[in-house]
Simulated scan of single mutants.
Amino acid sequence: MEQVLMFATILAPVITALVELVKKTQKIPKKYIPFISFLIGILIGIVGYPFTDLGLTMRIWSGGLAGLASTGLFELVKKKNKVAK
């Protein structure tokens, strides 16, 4: 489980950047952003096989967790920037 969390921690900023790229290039309703983030996380987790020795199931879990975490990370930074202004 420790490897899953470590891999998810590494994936979260990458997924945040990819979701922002998708948001800037495609018109997507805000209510679908967490789902898009989750899907991108799963896809990146699957594609991440050269970087880890985790099995496919564990990479999918890591990607999904990272996708959900990246949505929370973005919202946290966004709220913090609003309070600072």
Rank of each mutant, 00 (worst) to 15 (best):
T25W: 12
I46K: 09
A84W: 12
L68K: 01
G55L: 13
Y32N: 12
A8N: 05
E75V: 01
G45Q: 01
T25Y: 09
E75A: 04
P50R: 00
F74H: 06
D53P: 01
A84T: 05
I10M: 10
I46G: 10
E75W: 15
K78G: 08
L54K: 02
P13Y: 03
I33N: 04
L39F: 12
T9E: 06
G55C: 09
L11Q: 07
L18T: 08
I46R: 10
F74L: 09
T52H: 03
I60T: 00
I36Q: 15
I46H: 07
E20G: 15
K24Q: 13
I33L: 09
Y32M: 05
L11H: 02
K85P: 03
M58T: 13
P50L: 00
G45W: 00
S37L: 05
F74S: 04
Y32K: 03
I10H: 15
I44L: 11
A17F: 14
A8H: 08
E20V: 09
Q26N: 13
L68T: 10
V47S: 07
K23V: 15
G72P: 05
I60S: 10
E2Q: 15
S37N: 06
T52F: 06
A8D: 10
T57N: 11
L39G: 14
S70C: 02
L73Q: 02
T52A: 02
F35S: 15
I46W: 03
V4K: 08
I28H: 03
F35R: 14
V22S: 07
G72A: 07
I42K: 00
G63T: 06
I33F: 12
G45N: 02
I40R: 00
A12E: 12
M58S: 06
K78L: 07
V22P: 07
A8W: 10
Q26M: 10
M6K: 03
V19R: 00
L68A: 01
K80C: 10
G41M: 10
L76C: 04
A69V: 08
Q26E: 05
E2A: 14
K80T: 14
A17P: 13
L54E: 00
K85W: 00
G64M: 08
V77R: 15
K31Q: 12
P13S: 03
T71D: 01
S70V: 04
F7D: 14
F38Q: 09
I28L: 06
T71H: 05
V4Q: 02
I46N: 07
D53G: 12
T9R: 11
R59E: 02
V14A: 08
G41F: 01
Y32H: 04
G55W: 11
K78P: 00
V14S: 11
M6N: 13
I36L: 15
K78W: 00
N81A: 10
P13H: 02
Y32S: 07
A12T: 14
M1I: 10
K31T: 07
P50V: 09
T57L: 10
V4D: 03
K31I: 14
K30F: 12
K78F: 00
K80A: 05
K23M: 09
E2G: 13
V19M: 04
I44E: 13
V22K: 08
K82L: 04
K27L: 15
K31Y: 14
Q26D: 09
Y32I: 12
P50N: 01
L76M: 09
T71N: 05
N81F: 14
P13R: 00
I60L: 13
T9K: 13
T52N: 04
L54V: 01
K24E: 15
L5C: 13
